Computed example of a mutant assay.
Amino acid sequence: MTVTQNESPTVVADDGVRLWAARSGIGDPLVLCHGGPGLWDYFEDLAELLADLTPVVRWDQRGCGRSEREVAGPWTLDRFVADLDAVRRHFGLERIRLLGHSWGAQLALSYALAHPERVSALVYVAGTGIGPDCDWHPAFLANLLARLGEQPERLARWRELDDRPVRSDDEDRESAVLQWSAEFQDQERAPARAERMADPWLGINHECGRALNQERRRSWGTPELYDACRALDLPVLILDGARDIRPRCAVDSLESALPRVRRVILPDAGHMVWTDDPKGFREAVGPATA
């Protein structure tokens, strides 16, 4: 994958914080928003999968991955929306096509709601809808334990690490890889695929993750959010894996609110949709990259 050489890999946000970003290919890119919160861009394989369809812009969110790590926030959705707008400006894009995955789907949707005139299309992948956490989080935890429990020693080790108030960096990585292994439908290949996500290991920003998850619990599921989605006049693709351990019914709230929406559910995919079903993912996303 070739990064355009005449553009700096450093985006400077409006408050001076430096964000890592990279653009591949030539032409109108698809801007990718990774999940977390508190993680880093893990879209190298996705960018390669779509390389003949569209160039992409990848970036690490504030305080995460290769972006400036010496920052202490603010860890708010509004701040992350502003950072995404800085990425747009940096690459000279008047309007952007957005793809967000997991927490990144929430970020991409929030950007589109804040700046609809700056978005031409939105691909919402494996998100959790616009309802409150009670719509999906209890079922997610139950499904996570069940998936990990298919190998009892894996579940026991994950519980042991999760119960520790303080973990070393190596233990943090091990815990993440164990949990990420539950996100793939193909459980035989899941450990290797989870290891790939952790290589290189750039360290989870837990403070960032806690703050943004708390904000979502306070503010998501409001009548104002539903009304804003009903007024969003741009094409949206909702793309799900039916075997995601987050219940897909939670996303019905978003689908029913949007006026211009297409939804594709891939029956043999989990949370990492493009890894579990690359062919189905390409076929679904292709029209949104045209």
Rank of each mutant, 00 (worst) to 15 (best):
P247K: 01
M197H: 05
G38H: 03
E195W: 14
S219W: 14
D162I: 10
A269C: 09
V3P: 06
S219L: 15
E283Y: 13
F91L: 02
G92K: 01
D277N: 09
I130G: 02
W40C: 05
V119I: 05
D14K: 00
R260G: 13
V11M: 09
W201Q: 02
V12S: 07
P132G: 04
E183G: 12
E188V: 11
G149F: 13
P259W: 14
R159T: 09
G92A: 05
Q179L: 11
D277C: 12
R23H: 11
W75R: 01
R118I: 06
D169P: 05
L237Y: 03
R89D: 12
P259G: 07
A121N: 00
D135I: 05
A156C: 07
V87R: 01
H101E: 09
V12W: 13
A22R: 01
E44M: 10
H137R: 12
G286D: 05
S219G: 12
D244Q: 06
M1A: 07
G270D: 08
F43T: 01
V31Y: 03
L50I: 01
P152Q: 02
R147G: 11
P191F: 09
G131I: 02
L99R: 00
L99S: 04
R282I: 03
D244G: 06
L53I: 00
A182N: 02
R262M: 04
V236M: 06
R216C: 13
E160Q: 10
R217W: 13
V31K: 00
S175H: 12
L46D: 03
V31L: 07
D135L: 08
L84C: 12
E171P: 08
Q179N: 08
Y226E: 15
R216Q: 10
Y124G: 02
E160P: 11
R23L: 11
G27N: 05
H206R: 02
P29R: 00
L232D: 01
F43M: 06
S120E: 08
Y124A: 04
Y226F: 15
V261R: 00
D169G: 07
R154G: 09
S219P: 10
R88D: 06
L113I: 01
D199P: 11
A142S: 10
G36H: 01
A13L: 05
P165E: 08
V119Y: 03
G25M: 00
G127A: 13
D41F: 10
A22E: 08
H34S: 04
A112M: 13
D52R: 00
G36P: 04
L225C: 04
D172I: 08
D163T: 04
L49T: 02
E117T: 09
L19E: 07
H137S: 15
H34I: 03
L155A: 09
Y124I: 04
R118V: 07
R66W: 15
V3A: 04
G36V: 02
P132H: 04
H137G: 12
C134H: 15
P116V: 07
V264C: 13
R217A: 15
E188S: 12
E48Q: 10
R154H: 13
R167S: 11
